[in-house]
Amino acid sequence: MVVVSLVVAIILIGLWVGSDSSLLPVQASLNAPLYDQLFRVLYSIGTILFLGVFGVLIYSLIRFRRRAGDVSDGAATEGNLPLEIVWTAIPAVVVLFVGLYSYNIYDRMGGMTSLGDHGGMHSMEAMTAMDQRPAGEVWGGIGTATGLTPATTVDVTAMQFAFIFSYPSSNIISGELHVPVGQPVELHMKANDVIHAFWVPQFRLKQDIIPGQPTVLAFTPTREGTYPIICAELCGPYHGGMRTSVVVHGQDAYEQWLKQNSPDPVAA
């Protein structure tokens, strides 16, 4: 009875801990709530496992501690096959569940969308502008859950130690990324010198930017605001300083930004 209530208590603590989302940065993309859902499940399972192991360990160390002068041995238990099968099966089931669940999350994030079906891949001009390689060789980061054709396509060039964002449709070149809220965005990324990575913690997204290997990253921002873009791959002495911002605008403010920054007033 005591054991059962302890197990229930540990499970409840695990579930309670997992329901706390204050550990994570704010959610600013369609990916983020999915990510946080997975995070909470893993956090719950992890807490339950950890408390279980920790509890048994501490209990054993106290309950079975050697008294002074005791030179006797413990029981000559060499194993217990049914017990060992149980604690092989439980982790196997947990791991299988975690794997299937995270696959489901990954699929809903758009990670399993093959690049051939990808909305943005139809614009061959964009592809050839990026690189001479055939379209099939572009590597994808995580896709977007909407399946819509991207409203905004931005070419990203990473170099030591800056990101440059160019908007092919309006000839804007910017050191910050500006995107409209609620619309799918697709980044076509290339690196000039060494490997960099594009990371926005609030979007829960990261993709390496690889010299000689164009990559695509798609996401849909959901929350207006300014978030950091951080280079996450060691790229040289100023790696820590390779940061900029992504500004998520409301639709009107985004149009405004495009108009103000376009070098060609006619196109705006």
Partner: peptide
């Protein structure tokens, strides 16, 4: 947790 692709993509590196 890190073995899960969607988890790793945020916290990698």
């Amino acid at each position: 947790a890190l073995a899960q692709v969607p988890f790793d993509i945020h916290v990698h590196d």
